[in-house]
Design a protein around this nucleic acid. Structure first.
Lengths: 200, 200
DNA sequence: CTGAAGGCTTAACCTAGTTTAAGACTATTT
DNA sequence: AAATAGTCTTAAACTAGGTTAAGCCTTCAG
């Protein structure tokens, strides 16, 4: 669907606030290449074994990106809310089948761009190469911190850290989803929460 | 030190094989901005609380990038061998104190570029913006796989996976270092290795 | 040649986190 | 309004992996 002006404004503002701001020409280039899509709760942006066709910018709502292991358990790698991107980079850039799911946790609205159109944008507008380099750099740094956490902190410390770094998400998401993100069972998260209360 | 021709040739070949190959002009731009440095075994490229001044390309040797937790334990986030980069991106890009160490596991030779010189390279030669975007994308994908592993696989599976993905490293590194990378104790790795032998 | 320092293994004991199961509570659907 | 499906908690039994400690091998500096 043709994107609404308000959605595009959100994307422009995003670049303006956090990256090299776009010229009018560059904004027009966005407008002609992004499409808008509204997603129902529990609908999928991507399912395992599909090729990730779109990079998606979240205008409204909330998504989880997760993998399912042999025993059928979900493992959440990333949440994405307003003004964040949610894409399986491995599948998107190589255009090969994905190993993950991207699912809406709330009714959502996204702006999407196809892989070929993004490459086209990179080719014609130097600034996008640069802005996306920085964007991925920041993602890389965030991931590295997450690995460090998962290796060196116990469950309670990881939970505390999650609360510190994503206070808004802690209220917005059910504990089952947070537990999956932290790599523990909901039952054990429940115990941690209980122990914290009686401790403090 | 002024880089040797052979080191620069390794860096050029690296871009040629895996990225958009460089023109002669771009290669010259590298030559004037990279410096060569040889590192003794157990010497540090970076220590905690220092600012990561250089992005380092490994010409020869092997490094570990690790963090130390409150109880003094090392947690290895990354190994880097020939034709790989080793840099604390968080510290390097933000030019703020690092939370990690980078230490040589073998006598090593690296090519280094300062943050300002790299930005300069990005500004004057579009191709570096692009090549480094792709480089970080690939690093991002590798990290995401690692997180997935650490969340959803048990120690034995992680070890098997390490052997599959880094067969050369498995012979090159002591098991203590591999254990630290896998997030387990050397004793437990020893047990896994024993169980695998008797199992097969 | 010798001693010190790593590195690898084994084994007994310990603990963080899982599993299973059950009950209460809250949303969503019909 | 009832039915259904998800959510949160508690608790007992269990398991993956950690800790401590000891013994043996190799390497390398003096």
């Amino acid at each position: 669907m043709q994107p609404q002006a308000t959605s595009l404004a959100a994307l422009s503002a995003y670049f303006k606030n956090d990256y090299f701001p776009l010229t009018e020409k560059e904004e027009q280039a966005l407008a002609s290449r992004f499409t808008e899509r509204s997603i129902k709760r529990r609908a999928f942006l991507l399912q395992q074994d599909e090729i990730c066709q779109y990079a998606s910018f979240v205008v409204r709502g909330c998504f989880k990106l997760y993998a399912v292991d042999q025993s059928g358990k979900e493992h959440i790698l990333q949440f994405a809310v307003e003004n964040e991107w949610v894409t399986d980079l491995a599948s998107f850039y190589a255009q090969k089948p994905s190993g993950v799911y991207i699912e809406a946790l709330e009714p959502a609205l996204v702006l999407q761009i196809k892989h070929a159109d993004l490459l086209d944008l990179f080719t014609h507008f130097h600034k996008f190469d640069r802005n996306f380099r920085i964007l991925v750099e920041r993602g890389y740094i965030a991931l590295q911190n997450r690995i460090l956490q998962s290796i060196s902190a116990n469950a309670e410390e990881r939970y505390q850290n999650f609360l510190d770094q994503h206070p808004h998400l802690a209220n917005r998401l059910p504990n089952t989803q947070i537990a999956s993100y932290l790599g523990i069972t909901p039952e054990f998260l429940s115990k941690i929460r209980k122990d914290r209360v009686t401790k403090v």
